[in-house]
Amino acid sequence: MSVLVYTENWDGKFKKSSFELVSYASKVAEMMGTSAVAVSIGNVDEAELKLLGNYGAQKVISVNQDNLKTLDSQAYTSAIASVAEKIGAKVIVVANNNSGKSIAPRLSVRLKAALGAGVSKLPISTSPFTVYKRAFSGGAYADVVLKTDVKVITLAQNSFDVIETANNAVIEKMDISVDAPKTQVKEVQKQSGKLLLTDAEIVVSGGRGMKSADNWAPIVELADLLGGATACSRPVSDEGWRPHDEHTGQTGKIIAPNLYFAVGISGATQHIAGVSSSKYIVAINNDKSAPIFEVAQYGIVGDAQKVLPQLVAAVKEIKGK
């Protein structure tokens, strides 16, 4: 018996989100009186694999083979399901990101294991095994009972803090043969070096109240100064003021930073659906009755064009820049 956690890597490296995932899996294992085992797919060196031990993984299983070079959901599902069966995993934890979403539901069917998707807390109880997940796009949460012996959980991003422990993980290389993938990646277009919106702990986001693409400089500057990323509401990306990958909300990206600045954003339900899991929301809006203030913890009622430069100046002062 054990808890298996799939830790994705990005060009051979793990991210903070990988460590959050392992920390979570270790806590779940503790609740069940067992230990956490991580599985890594692809080419990751031993030193990097060892890092997972610092967050509680007792063992790290490394699978590396040609048929797993690109993310093919069938091939990855086969590989992870085989590892789960070999070690007798009772719970499999996967990230609720694009890759996790393409693997976890398949694992659920393959192993006839109930899926708890987008879980944002430790299980409420282990018997019956009950998880807490987002429902109605953040309008509510649901306590869902996973009724099978084996369970699959996808953990919402940024919903669990990393917990460091002194622990030396055993690294095991496992050979697992999987069929050749049916999907073929023809071309990859990647922008590297940019902080990803879904990884950012601080996000500065602008809405239609910013009036024009030309007014974005202080938003970008504030985000840069805070080591954060920029985002926007849907009309802004529809207008072409900002790139589509910044569109946040129900029909764009769903994010959960620690600090979310909503500048000139009214706070429509569809926008809030994408940001309601942020730890703190700061609103800047010239309309005191804008719904964004109902979900914000900090607010300024004022003109963004006047307020933003002063915020930038204040941050510069604090950071000594």
Binding site: P105, S108, A117
Partner: peptide
């Protein structure tokens, strides 16, 4: 409503 991101991949499996 369910926000599971699950049905499509499950159908495929």
């Amino acid at each position: 409503d369910f926000n599971s991101s699950a049905v499509g991949s499950m159908v495929a499996e």
